[in-house]
Simulated assay, not measured.
Amino acid sequence: MIEKPRKTSAPRPTTTRPSAGPAVPRMWRWLAATILVLGLAAVFRYLVVEPRSMGFACSETPTPWWCGPREWVIMLHLNNVWGAVALASGILALFFRQNWALPVALVTGLAGMVLYDTGLSAIGFLFALLRMLRS
């Protein structure tokens, strides 16, 4: 049998929109993590670091068990550790595309901004946000 040639039309360009499926839940996870970090840092700042009664309680002997972690966080702030870690991990995330550095930059950047280490923390957090936009 002889087959008749089929009429073929030129392929039509398809206009499909990229699906927003996986990006939407990922956005909500990042938003939830952001709110959690901000909430924990704010609670720690306003209930543990700032009150004078906490400072007075830590100057007594014997000191309560929570004075050690409180002093560590205050020393991290005084030595700009939050900002340095946020900036270093933000640079690693943005320029060297290290995936593990992105959440580190976000968490330490947010915590540093809430716990008085705003300069470097904000830059590291901004680098992490730019990295999120690039991916």
Rank of each mutant, 00 (worst) to 15 (best):
M1E: 08
I2R: 13
I2P: 08
I2E: 12
I2N: 11
E3K: 11
E3I: 13
R6F: 06
K7L: 14
A10K: 15
A10N: 15
P11S: 11
T14K: 15
T15I: 15
R17I: 10
P18H: 09
P18D: 06
G21E: 05
P22M: 11
P22A: 11
A23N: 11
R26A: 14
R26Y: 10
R26C: 06
M27A: 15
W28P: 12
L31W: 13
A32E: 06
T34S: 12
V37G: 05
V37R: 13
L38A: 15
L38D: 04
L40Y: 06
A42G: 09
V43G: 07
V43D: 05
F44W: 14
F44V: 14
P51W: 02
P51E: 00
S53L: 13
G55H: 15
F56N: 12
F56E: 12
A57Y: 00
S59W: 13
E60D: 10
P64R: 10
W65V: 14
C67S: 09
P69L: 08
P69Q: 14
R70Y: 04
R70G: 02
E71Y: 08
E71A: 14
W72F: 13
V73S: 08
I74M: 04
L76Q: 06
N80T: 12
V81M: 01
W82S: 00
W82Y: 07
V85F: 03
A86Y: 02
A88P: 07
A88L: 14
G90Q: 01
I91K: 07
I91R: 03
L92G: 01
L92C: 02
A93M: 04
F96E: 06
R97P: 02
Q98K: 15
Q98F: 12
A101N: 02
L102C: 13
P103Y: 03
V104Q: 07
V104L: 13
A105F: 00
V107H: 03
T108M: 02
A111Y: 07
A111I: 08
M113E: 01
M113Q: 07
M113I: 06
L115H: 06
L115M: 11
Y116A: 09
Y116V: 09
D117H: 01
G119E: 12
L120P: 01
L120A: 06
S121L: 02
A122P: 00
I123H: 06
G124Q: 01
G124A: 02
G124N: 03
G124Y: 01
G124V: 04
F125D: 02
F125V: 00
F125A: 03
L126V: 09
L126N: 04
F127M: 05
L129K: 05
L129A: 05
R131Q: 07
R131Y: 04
M132N: 11
M132F: 14
M132H: 13
L133D: 11
